Computed example of a mutant assay.
Amino acid sequence: MRRDPRLETITQVLRLPRVRRPFVGRELREPVLRLEGGRNEWSASVPQVAEAIYTALYGRPDTTPQPSPVQQADDAKRRRDIAGEIGALMSGHAALTSAPWYPARPGDLVHVHYEAAVAVFGETYLVAPGFADGFLSMQLLCHTLPADTEFLAGMVGCFAVDDDPDPLAGLWTEAGPQRLTIVRDGRPVHIGGAR
């Protein structure tokens, strides 16, 4: 039987001792893998093991912040690349519509996190039924804009919409999926800032 080098790499990763550390936050809800016996005893969450295997096979995961689809389209427009501009918008739309939790439903909570040069803040929106049949609205619930940044106040709530067939489309393409957290029935279905 011929050995695959990828399988050997995974086996080596699993044989390396892992540092035991307390599981906090979301790791408490994650399944924990334990390897016991001999000197290679370790415990780790599934994401920790997955990252170790990925790193061994392909190198460190890319954690560079990705620009939003609109920013990618603007970059292509500056380069006078019409195909790149259209492609950025189309791939952004395809990423939204192919998500397993899509489309938005009434009751969904959508949080957007801004990292502006002037202020770091967030907004939380509620998806609600619209007035027209099959349409939805997105209402601003709250924001964390500091009081000393009044000049940004006009930006707060800019993604609120009434009677829209796809209320997430503007927020997804303009702010970017990496800045969004979407919660459905008390469970996060999209965590854009997670590695």
Rank of each mutant, 00 (worst) to 15 (best):
Leu109Pro: 06
Arg78Gln: 15
Glu41Ile: 09
Gly170Asn: 06
Ala104Trp: 04
Leu152Thr: 10
Gln71Val: 08
Cys158Ala: 14
Thr124Asn: 05
Ala153Glu: 15
Ser98Met: 12
Val127Glu: 03
Glu41Val: 14
Ile182His: 10
Leu14Trp: 01
Phe159Asp: 05
Ile191Lys: 14
Arg29Asn: 14
Val127His: 03
Ser45Trp: 01
Ala117Ser: 14
Leu168Val: 10
Asp74Tyr: 03
Pro65Leu: 00
Ala83Asn: 11
Pro146Gly: 06
Leu109Trp: 05
Glu36Val: 13
Pro67Thr: 04
Ala128Cys: 04
Pro47His: 00
Val32His: 14
Ser98Leu: 08
Arg195Asn: 13
Glu51His: 06
Tyr58Thr: 00
Ala194Tyr: 11
Leu140Phe: 06
Gly38Lys: 06
Thr11Gln: 04
Arg26Val: 12
Asp133Ile: 11
Ile82Leu: 15
Arg195Met: 08
Pro67Gln: 06
Phe159Ile: 03
Glu51Ala: 11
Ala44Ile: 03
Val156Thr: 13
Glu115Gln: 13
Ala119Met: 01
Trp101Leu: 09
Gly122Leu: 04
Tyr102Leu: 13
Ile53Asn: 03
Leu33Gln: 06
Tyr114Ile: 06
Val156Pro: 11
Ala56Ser: 04
Ile191Gly: 11
Leu141Phe: 01
Leu140Thr: 04
Ala83Lys: 13
Glu85Thr: 12
Arg34Cys: 12
Pro47Met: 02
Pro22Lys: 02
Gln71Gly: 02
Asp163Met: 07
Arg2Ala: 07
Ala88Ile: 03
Leu136Arg: 00
Asp166Arg: 05
Pro177Thr: 07
Glu150Ile: 11
His113Thr: 15
Glu27Leu: 02
Leu168Phe: 08
Arg26Ile: 09
Cys158Asp: 10
Thr63Asn: 03
Gly170Phe: 00
Pro61Ala: 00
Ala194Cys: 09
Gly38Tyr: 03
Ala50Asn: 07
Gly87Trp: 02
Ala83His: 13
Arg105Phe: 00
Asp164Pro: 05
Pro103Gly: 14
Tyr114Thr: 08
Ala99Gln: 15
Pro188Val: 11
Arg34Glu: 15
Ala175Glu: 12
Ser43Ala: 10
Arg195Leu: 12
Leu180Trp: 06
Phe135Thr: 15
Arg195Glu: 14
Asp133Thr: 13
Ala95Asn: 03
Leu141His: 07
Asp162His: 13
Thr11Val: 06
Phe121Asn: 07
Asp133Asn: 11
Pro165Met: 08
Val110Glu: 05
Tyr102Pro: 15
Pro5Ser: 02
Tyr114Asn: 10
Tyr125Ile: 01
Val183Cys: 01
Lys77Trp: 10
Glu174Gln: 12
Val161Lys: 02
Phe151Ser: 14
Val156Gly: 09
Val156Gln: 11
Gly59Ala: 01
Glu8Ser: 06
Val112Ala: 12
Pro103Cys: 14
Asp164His: 15
His111Arg: 15
Arg105Asn: 03
Ala56Phe: 00
Pro22Gln: 04
Arg179Phe: 08
Gly122Trp: 11
Leu180Ala: 08
Pro103Arg: 12
Glu51Lys: 07
Leu33His: 05
Glu85Tyr: 04
Cys142Thr: 15
